[in-house]
C-alpha cells in the first residue's frame, strides 16, 4: 500500500483496496468527538445512589471513559450493591438508566440485560445456575448509559438496542465493579474461614491443654503463645514492671501490620518515647502510637506511670478477626 491516499476510482475498482482502506480507517486514531456534551452520573454518585436506596454490606461503582458509536459519544457507568438487607433468594435486581432516566419496561429486550446474562458471574462469587443467565444472590446491579443519541429499540424508549460498541463498554463497566465485589467476597469468605478455625481451635486447644496437664499432673500450660501463632494473629500485650509499662505488639502473620494503638491512661504517663504522642483530655491521657511491625516481628512501647493507673487500650487498623488484645 503506497503512503499516498488512493484515488476514489482505485478504491472503487478493487475490492482489496477498498477493504484495506476500511481497515486503515478503523485502525487510525481519530479525534474523539467532544464528550462535555454528555451527562454522566459519575461513579461516586452511582455509589451514593445505591447507598441511599439499599442497605447493603458492600457497594462498588465504575465509570468508563467516553467511547463512540456511529459518531455519537457515550459513557457507560455501572454500580453493584451486595448483601445486608438485600433479599437473599432469587435473581439479582437490574436497574437500567439512559441519560439519567430509569428504564422500567421491556427489561428482557434491553442490551444491558443481555450483557449481564453473558457475564460468567461465578468468577465473581455470585451464584449463576448453569453458568449463564441472570445471577442469583442478594445484589443489585445498576447500569447507566449516557449518550447524545441513545440507541433505543423503539420509539417508546424502553430498552437499549444491541450495539456492539455499547455492549462492550457495558460489559467492561460491570466487570470493573464486579471485580471489587469479588475481592470483597473472597475476603469475607477467608475471614469467615478464619473465624470458624478460631472457633474450633479455640475450643480444642484448651481441651488439649487440660488433658495433657491432667496426664502429666502439672498445672495448666499457658497456651496464649500457641494460639496467637496459630491464628496468624497480631497480639497486643501489656507488661507492667513497677512503674514501667510496656505495650508489646507481636505480629504473627507474614505481612507487615500498622496498628493504631491508643492507650487511655488515668495517670499522666512520663518518659513517653517520640514515636508516640500524648494528649491530655480532662484527666485522661491518650497515648497514641502507630508502629509498623513486619511479619514475625514485635514492637514495644515503653513509658512510665506512677502509682495506681488504670489502662484502656484500643487498637484500630487491624481486622477484628486477626487481633488479640490482652492488655
Amino acid at each position: 500500500m503506497p503512503d499516498d491516499p488512493p484515488k476514489v476510482r482505485e478504491a472503487a475498482a478493487s475490492r482489496d483496496v477498498a477493504s484495506e482502506l476500511l481497515e486503515a480507517m478503523r485502525a487510525t486514531d481519530i479525534l474523539a468527538p467532544p464528550t462535555d456534551c454528555l451527562a454522566p452520573i459519575t461513579d461516586e454518585l452511582v455509589e451514593a445512589g445505591l447507598r441511599k436506596e439499599f442497605d447493603a454490606d458492600f457497594y462498588a461503582a465504575s465509570t468508563r471513559d467516553a467511547e463512540v458509536h456511529g459518531g455519537d459519544p457515550f459513557i457507560v457507568e455501572a454500580g453493584i450493591a451486595y448483601g445486608g438487607e438485600l433479599e437473599e433468594g432469587g435473581g439479582v435486581d437490574l436497574l437500567r438508566f439512559a441519560n439519567r432516566v430509569p428504564l422500567v419496561y421491556q427489561r428482557g429486550a434491553c442490551a444491558t440485560t443481555d450483557v449481564v446474562k453473558r457475564i460468567g458471574w461465578r468468577n465473581y462469587g455470585l451464584d449463576q445456575p448453569g453458568g449463564s443467565g441472570m445471577p442469583n444472590g442478594p445484589a443489585v446491579i445498576s447500569i447507566h448509559v449516557a449518550s447524545t443519541n441513545v440507541p433505543f429499540t423503539s420509539e417508546s424508549k424502553d430498552a437499549l438496542a444491541n450495539i456492539p460498541e455499547i455492549e462492550d463498554e457495558i460489559e467492561l463497566a460491570v466487570r470493573e465493579a464486579a471485580r471489587e465485589l469479588k475481592s470483597f467476597l473472597n475476603k469475607r469468605r477467608s475471614m469467615q474461614k478464619r473465624r470458624e478455625k478460631q472457633d474450633v481451635l479455640g475450643r480444642i486447644l484448651p481441651e488439649m491443654a487440660d488433658k495433657v496437664s491432667e496426664v502429666t499432673g502439672s498445672r495448666r500450660p499457658n497456651i496464649d503463645g500457641a494460639m496467637a501463632r496459630i491464628m496468624n494473629n497480631v497480639g497486643v500485650e501489656r507488661e507492667r514492671d513497677g512503674d514501667t509499662v510496656r505495650l508489646v505488639v507481636e505480629n504473627h502473620s507474614d505481612r507487615a501490620e500498622e496498628p493504631d494503638v491508643t492507650d487511655i491512661v488515668s495517670v499522666e504517663p512520663t518518659d513517653v518515647p517520640e514515636a508516640a504522642t500524648v494528649v491530655d483530655l480532662d484527666g485522661e491521657w491518650f497515648v497514641k502510637w502507630t508502629p509498623t511491625v513486619a511479619g514475625g516481628e514485635t514492637a514495644t512501647l515503653q513509658y512510665t506511670v506512677a502509682g495506681d493507673a488504670e489502662f484502656d487500650v484500643n487498637v484500630d487498623g487491624i481486622e477484628a478477626e486477626k487481633l488479640t488484645v490482652n492488655a
Binding site: 491443654a209 503463645g225 496459630i230
Partner: peptide, 19 residues
Amino acid sequence: QLIDLAADIYDQFERGDIP
C-alpha cells in the same frame, strides 16, 4: 513413655510453640 508424649505437648505449649 506415654506420659512423655503428653509432656512433650505440654512443653510445646509452654514454649509458646504450636504443638
